[in-house]
């Protein structure tokens, strides 16, 4: 029987205090495990976010649209060709100039799929460079603050 003055936390007597300690330790372990699981999940989410940003983030979508949409409008009617089409136009012309030397009989309309693919590649690369520049400037700002 436990009486007032007994040391219930004493490990030496193996009483109810020791059981509670063990229960607390178990609970702490469980919390730690759950925390680790949450951290893992957060890492996974962060990884997925980074991967998604690289291949289809807002920067990629914007750059891809900038390269393709104005050019498509221009090819529907030259009166819809705007200066915004200049980058896509330059890429399209460059592709056909190279392509003409490699496969002279390739019809120009067949250059659209490679053009879209190249535009996507340029958009991914451009967005990556943009993100790297932003990270670099953030780091510089942080260093300047310290």
């Amino acid at each position: 029987m436990t009486t007032a003055g007994d040391d219930v936390t004493s490990e030496s007597d193996g009483g109810p205090g020791a059981d509670r300690d063990a229960a607390i330790a178990d609970r702490d372990d469980a919390i730690a495990d759950r925390g680790a699981a949450i951290a893992d999940r957060d890492d996974a989410i962060a990884d997925r976010g980074t991967w998604w940003t690289v291949v289809a983030g807002p920067g990629v979508v914007c750059l891809f649209s900038l390269l393709t949409v104005p050019l498509v409008l221009g090819t529907l009617d030259a009166r819809l060709h705007s200066p915004l089409a200049a980058p896509g136009y330059a890429l399209f012309v460059a592709l056909t100039v190279v392509g003409e030397r490699v496969v002279p009989q390739f019809a120009f309309r067949l250059y659209w799929p490679p053009f879209l693919l190249c535009s996507y590649g340029v958009a991914v690369a451009g967005a990556g460079v943009g993100r790297a520049c932003l990270r670099g400037s953030d780091r510089l700002r942080g260093a300047a603050r310290e």
Binding site: G74, A78, H81, S82, P83, A85, A86, Y89, V93
Partner: peptide, 8 residues
């Protein structure tokens, strides 16, 4: 009629 950005 030829836009400047259609240089080719």
């Amino acid at each position: 009629v030829v836009p400047a950005s259609m240089w080719a």
